[in-house]
Simulated scan of single mutants.
Amino acid sequence: MSNYSIKDLEQLSGIKAHTLRIWEQRYNLLNPKRTETNIRYYDDADLKLILNVAMLNANGLKISKIAAMSSVDISQEIIRLTDQSVDHKDQIQALTICMIELDEVRFEKVLSTNILKLGFEETVLEVIYPFLSKIGLLWQTGAINPAQEHFISNLIRQKLIVAIDGQMGNSQGKTFMLFLPEGELHELSLLFSSYLIKKHGHKVIYLGQSTPQADLISVYNMQKPNYLLTVITSVPAGDKVQEYVDMLGREFPKSEIFVSGLQALEQSLSIPSNLRLLSYAKEIKEILLRMEAQTV
């Protein structure tokens, strides 16, 4: 069980701490505990409640009405609202609640409903990616544990793999080699890139997580791909990022290389002439569309 300050609840729910205190005093909405040194804190149940309350309040329900509702009524109203709403923020909040509660059935329903309404691509770009950013915030505050993060990441990974399997590459298209640096395991962005590339009729050589440099060079020499794409989220880090980027430019001079990820984007790197940094998910789609326009 995690403990949260009122500032944590503010960050996670979007409700100002001042407002939370008013709700607590006026409506007895929250029941803070105290440490042995008399410092107030909130638990998992308080977090789940305030996430639900924030979503209902954002959709027009008065706080006085919400405070009078039972926990069952609140849950039912959240489900009804999620099923009807097309607002991305509501869907992200719903996914967050599913993750905290480890509710796979509800997660599947929320995601499937979004895919039916928006299509798979827009669901990933407008709902899943912002949701993953929120997971990062939850990590920073200690609001989720590794099991919850792994639970939700694996469910998203399964959806991406199914979507990729539904796409057929084109022998007339370009060849992309996708990989993560050795030690890097954050695969979701790479999987989505694979989906987009195959959807646009190109061939994907997918090497996946933690690809050793020797293996990368070996496959490259056999396949001679037109493009390489990698994502550096956590490994390598620090000065090692520049070394890795330099290696890519040096070892694969005849291919265009796309690099994204937190570690690459947060540093001032010296970029080899055949390498390009991608700062957001839609950029790979824009590149693919420009490639199509050039072949028309």
Rank of each mutant, 00 (worst) to 15 (best):
G142E: 14
S5H: 10
E266P: 00
M247Y: 08
P236T: 05
P181N: 00
L56Y: 04
K199G: 00
Q267T: 02
G173H: 02
H88G: 06
L49V: 05
V231L: 11
N145S: 09
S75Y: 10
R250N: 15
M247H: 04
K62S: 13
I22D: 03
G249Y: 09
Q267F: 02
R290M: 13
M177G: 00
F131T: 07
E243N: 08
S13Y: 09
A281G: 09
H150T: 10
M291W: 12
I156S: 00
L228Q: 02
A94R: 02
A54K: 11
A237V: 06
L277H: 07
L81Y: 06
L262A: 08
I22A: 06
K7T: 11
V105C: 06
D87Y: 10
L190P: 03
Q25N: 10
G208E: 02
I232K: 01
K198I: 06
M177Q: 01
N114Y: 14
S2H: 14
S268E: 08
G183I: 08
T96I: 12
I144L: 15
L132C: 09
I271V: 09
S273T: 05
T141L: 09
E266M: 07
S270G: 05
L125G: 00
H18F: 03
I197Y: 10
P32S: 05
G136H: 03
N154S: 05
